[in-house]
């Protein structure tokens, strides 16, 4: 769930833009390097971005029947790495503003921060550390995607709480409120996305092992089945 246009006051919106910009500059630079080095890599990067966008506009099947959208950031970050995902995530969010009316220009900085920076790095960090601990691919991917989603929503709740502290209990109260509302809607969503991402990676593992090897997600051919 992205913060809508105009929801954050001007000072907060520009502050989050400022916080996002160094990560974005870094991400764009590394994307530029990938594009320069290899003509094919440029198109693959573009295709990955298009894939990430379609994924982000997807409706997840859920028990309650309400439409729930995944962020796709967990899968993207595991496949392409967090640096590239930051840039792709930024463009995905921009397209969501332009084509779907989700989020906004002034809040694009805040939304990029929560989804494409915090989400992507959490996904990548969790995935790498769980893999290093020797857990299976499936378990690592599940926790990476689920925790990335949760981290994104916690960051969003924090951004809203900072902008609108509770009149009685201040920041902590506001954080509790926004987290409470998000917990109802987003925890099931995070788990569904974790599940879906795991299933997708399973399909990759059985049908497109080379792709995973090329992307560095798995290290050797003989790796045990998830």
């Amino acid at each position: 769930m992205h913060i809508m246009e105009g929801y954050l006051p001007a000072s907060h919106a520009s502050g989050w833009w400022l916080a996002t910009s160094p990560f974005l500059a870094w991400g764009i630079r590394s994307a530029g390097k990938i594009m320069k080095g290899n003509k094919e890599a440029k198109l693959l990067l573009g295709a990955s971005g298009g894939f990430a966008f379609v994924l982000s506009a997807l409706k997840l099947p859920s028990v309650t029947g309400s439409s729930a959208h995944p962020t796709g950031i967990g899968l993207g970050s595991v496949l392409f790495g967090p640096q590239v995902m930051c840039t792709i995530g930024f463009v995905v969010l921009l397209f969501q503003v332009m084509f779907l009316g989700h989020g906004g220009i002034t809040t694009l900085g805040a939304n990029t921060f929560s989804m494409a920076i915090v989400g992507a790095w959490v996904a990548w960090g969790v995935f790498r550390s769980l893999k290093a601990l020797g857990l299976s691919l499936a378990v690592s991917v599940f926790f990476a995607a689920t925790l990335a989603d949760l981290a994104t929503y916690i960051t969003t709740a924090l951004q809203l709480a900072l902008a609108f502290p509770d009149p009685v209990s201040g920041l902590s109260g506001a954080l509790a409120k926004f987290m409470g509302i998000f917990a109802l809607t987003q925890v099931p969503l995070a788990i569904s996305e974790g599940l879906l991402t795991t299933l997708v990676v399973n399909v990759f593992h059985s049908h497109g092992r080379e792709a995973l090897l090329n992307l560095g997600v798995i290290s050797k051919v003989g790796e045990s089945k998830p």
């Binding site: 594009m35 573009g46 298009g50 966008f53």
Partner: peptide
């Protein structure tokens, strides 16, 4: 370039 390519593909 990334925006153009993604727009083309999506």
């Amino acid at each position: 370039e990334l925006i153009e390519l993604m727009y083309r593909f999506l």
